[in-house]
């Protein structure tokens, strides 16, 4: 096929959008609406999962040691823990620091009262500890068992209930979000391809005329495919641009309005969300535009 013919087919595809303006707008509108819903839900789910992750990571396990244990032995235990894959962060608190922190909370920093009550004694002499956060809350039980089995460890403190609740919520959100995203995706695909199919079907007479005067399948189909891809591209780009700006506005608004919750209400950076969302939306829009027009024209080409 000549370049000039290809160019003609390409231009005809673009002109078809203008010729069938109402259908084109309806198609773009459908794609925008579907992908806007999909994108919004995707952004919410991603942020919810990130917040859940932060909460999981804040669930700490505290390890206390046998009475009279040496600092070398504590360091040795620390090394054994540090190499475990479950460990996210790990902080050591000496018995002195523990007492200092506790006494300050108890006596509001009044050193005279502390000295009068305890002198130089440290009631928390056996409470040096490692404070550990883990990467996945589901592994807490297994990790605690490992810690309890270490030589020199007296006690391991963990909140099993919190861990289990977070684990359940996480699983629930995981299943629900996958389910809703899949449903939204299927509904989008159905609506978009249906709109494109209707748009082409109402022009089957045009296709039949072209075929009867000797046009090849390629010649008839190419403008429709160009049209489908362009509509898909425009329809998917609009919600991406809109969501891109809206995301910043909404997250800024929520962060400022709920500043008291700032410790756990941390939204994902915009780029992190959109580096996945944009290609997925474009792929859906362009992909359905391409496949939809390809399949529908094929149906009417048998003339």
């Amino acid at each position: 096929m000549k370049i000039s013919t290809l160019w003609y087919c390409f231009l005809q595809g673009l002109k078809n959008i203008k010729r069938n303006l109402l259908f084109s707008l309806a198609s773009v509108g459908t794609i925008v609406a579907c992908l806007f819903l999909f994108g919004t839900f995707y952004a919410i789910v991603m942020n919810f999962e990130a917040i859940m992750q932060q909460m999981e990571e804040s669930v700490a396990v505290t390890v206390f040691f046998d009475s009279g244990i040496s600092q070398e032995k504590i360091d040795e235990i620390g090394e054994a823990i540090r190499v475990r894959p479950e460990v996210n962060t790990m902080d050591f608190m000496s018995a002195e620091d523990a007492w200092k922190q506790y006494s300050n909370e108890l006596f509001h920093g009044d050193q005279e009262k502390i000295d009068a009550a305890f002198g130089t004694d440290n009631p928390l002499a056996d409470y040096a500890s490692y404070n550990i956060t883990i990467t996945e809350v589901e592994k807490q039980v297994e990790f605690v068992e490992f810690l309890e089995g270490l030589d020199g460890v007296r006690k391991v403190k963990s909140s099993e209930a919190t861990a289990k609740q977070l684990e359940s919520i996480n699983a629930l959100v995981g299943y629900a979000s996958v389910g809703v995203i899949v449903i939204l995706l299927l509904v989008s695909i159905f609506l978009i391809s249906n709109t494109i199919t209707i748009g082409i079907t109402i022009r089957k007479e045009e296709i039949s005329i072209m075929k009867l005067i000797g046009a090849t399948d390629f010649f008839v189909r190419t403008p429709f495919i160009v049209e489908g891809i362009t509509i898909g591209l425009v329809g998917s780009a609009i919600p991406c641009v809109f969501l891109f700006f809206m995301y910043k506005m909404v997250t800024d608004f929520l962060t400022n309005t709920f500043s008291d919750l700032a410790s756990w209400l941390k939204f994902l950076p915009r780029n992190e969300v959109f580096q996945v969302l944009v290609p997925v939306c474009l792929l859906i829009g362009v992909g359905i535009g391409f496949v939809g027009s390809l399949i529908t024209t094929r149906k009417h080409l048998k003339v």
Binding site: M1, K2, S4, T5, Y8, M210, I213, G214, A215, T216, F219
Partner: peptide
């Protein structure tokens, strides 16, 4: 012109 375009007649 369409009938000529499908047989790739030069513009």
């Amino acid at each position: 012109a369409f009938a000529q375009r499908i047989v790739e007649t030069p513009p």
